[in-house]
Design a protein around this nucleic acid. Sequence first.
RNA 1: GGCCCGUUCGUCUAUCGGUUAGGACACCAGGUUUUCAACCUGGUAAGAGGGGUUCGACUCCCCUACGGGCUGCCA
Length: 470
Amino acid sequence: MSAPHSKPVVTRFAPSPTGYLHIGGGRTALFNWLFARGHGGTFLLRIEDTDRERSTPEATEAILRGLTWLGLDWDGKVVSQFDRRDRHAEVAREMLARGSAYKCFCTQEEIETFRASAKAAGHSTLFHSPWRDADPASHPDAPYVIRMKAPRGGETVITDAVQGSVTFGNDQLDDMVCLRSDGTPTYMLAVVVDDHDMGVTHVIRGDDHLNNAARQTMVYQAMGWDIPVWAHIPLIHGPDGKKLSKRHGAVGVEEYQAMGYPAAGMRNYLTRLGWAHGDDEFFTDAQAKAWFNLEGIGRAPARLDFKKLENLCGQHIAAADDAALLHEIQAYLAAAGHPALTVAQNDRLGRALYCLKDRAKTFPELIEKAHFALSTRPIVADEAAAKALDTVSRGILKDLTPRLHTAIWEKQELETILTEVAASHGIGFGKMAAPLRAGLAGRTVTPSVYDMMLVIGRDETIARLTDAAA
RNA sequence: GGCCCGUUCGUCUAUCGGUUAGGACACCAGGUUUUCAACCUGGUAAGAGGGGUUCGACUCCCCUACGGGCUGCCA
């Protein structure tokens, strides 16, 4: 870490709106959010839309939706980088006035030609503009870009909270373009101006920007601005260790919602991926905020492990508050394109959650096990369940139903009755559970038969069992 | 090509010169059980390779290998 910052923490997430919110971007946002929230700081959101060709409002919407689903709330208004282009141009001119930048009249064709031949000859492709030290009197009346006048000798050192001290020889850094020939700013300039103007104290971003940090440092120095604390975090890789791409399956954050992972589980998993706090694996948001620090971030890229994600999600579902869980399930259903629950289904699912949430790792799994609560008569047994409803079993059910009419509808009593009925037929309760499941749920995989009976109630239980026994 | 970063069980990681290298997920075996899930017990499994420095290296330095990133008037 560099000099201690006594200023309040300000972090930001700055995606470019060229597609959905990538899972790696989601984690970057999460880290920034956790760091800000854990330090009583501010978390800002800036859309880097200076590339007009590739930026779309749809992508911005998708990114906002992804962040919202993940539960990452930002402070203040979303900043559009493009809206700040006049300010960026102003800074470029200021650099020009200070002599730390210059006008370059080379055309893109010239530069491309140079790079192609340099590459072919095996030389460095760093471009050295002949206009760097040209007399302004010789400037033609033609389009130009404003380039940073980067120091030629010496080295630039960046101090990174994750990567440590990283040194770049200045001969490796060329005079980057700050203002394009059409007057629009480049990312390299805009990111520095915006981070400065927005008061960003900690830049936590992917380590694909590590090299850029050296270039950006030069802009800070040229303008005499304070350099933020850098924290370049490794990218997330696919299960095979390769760069995460579409062929690995889900890359967009919203896909994870559609697959039925609870947001709290995603946050926990993503936080733990590439960051550690001793041996802690399962933790709440409050704990994550309190514990998260830059020192705990690893330096190697981490691979996505869906098994572990599921395990953590299962724990979060089990720990969730019923009402909140119900809301999230409804949102999942909508995101996955499933029909919404009816009022009756919603009511019964809400009452069934207590016996469902301990046995599901994802929402699809929970919904599957909630089949008994979401269905109405007649309950149609699936193939496996139907096998449990043979003649003998139906006879037992017929024997059972009359006794349920007068039973006290609570677990203890039901247990007593079912055990007695089973015993009277010379079988253990285990043998009786299968036909009960088939009759009550039409499935072989369900919650406890007692829980199902309690959730759907006496009348429905008797009706379903009577149906099954017929 | 040049520059930069990385490398501990299959996976995520702990360790910040001295540990029988720990935990979690996954996996295997056994137990429990009302299906599933859960739970209990036990087990397999790691410092990329090679040089140094040191009384002592996973830990510090160098080289190699492998992986990744940057090298744009993209971000």
